[in-house]
Amino acid sequence: MTLAPWEEKHYTIPELAARWGVAQKTIRIVVRDRDDVPKWGKANRRDGKRDYVNYRIRESQLPEVYRELFPNGR
């Protein structure tokens, strides 16, 4: 049975970084340009404040993101 996207568990960048033992910035670089990763917040701000974007990676996307991070396995 396939779950709808809103029924799946969603992981944060810090959760995945701790789970896989990599820097949060590394995961953020991999997922920031993916259209299938839910994100919200303000990017490219012009008011002098820093950008702040939240990402949530669905459980079904984890194998794909993992392969992109570790193409030769671990």
Rank of each mutant, 00 (worst) to 15 (best):
S60H: 12
E7R: 09
A43G: 12
A4Y: 07
L16C: 00
E15K: 01
R45G: 02
E64C: 05
E7M: 14
R46L: 13
R58M: 12
E68D: 08
E8N: 03
L3C: 14
D33F: 04
F70W: 13
R56P: 06
G41D: 05
R74T: 09
R34G: 02
R50T: 15
E59P: 15
R19A: 05
D36R: 02
T26R: 11
E7G: 13
P5Y: 04
K39A: 01
E64R: 08
G21P: 03
R46T: 15
T2Y: 12
E68T: 08
R32Y: 07
A17D: 00
W20M: 01
D51S: 13
D33H: 07
N44F: 08
V53T: 13
R58W: 03
D51K: 07
R32N: 14
L16G: 00
I27S: 02
V53M: 11
D47T: 04
G73N: 07
R74C: 06
A23Q: 11
I57Y: 02
T12R: 01
R19I: 04
F70I: 10
I29E: 15
L16A: 00
R32M: 15
R50C: 11
T12D: 03
Y52Q: 15
T26G: 08
A18P: 01
N54G: 10
R58N: 09
T26I: 14
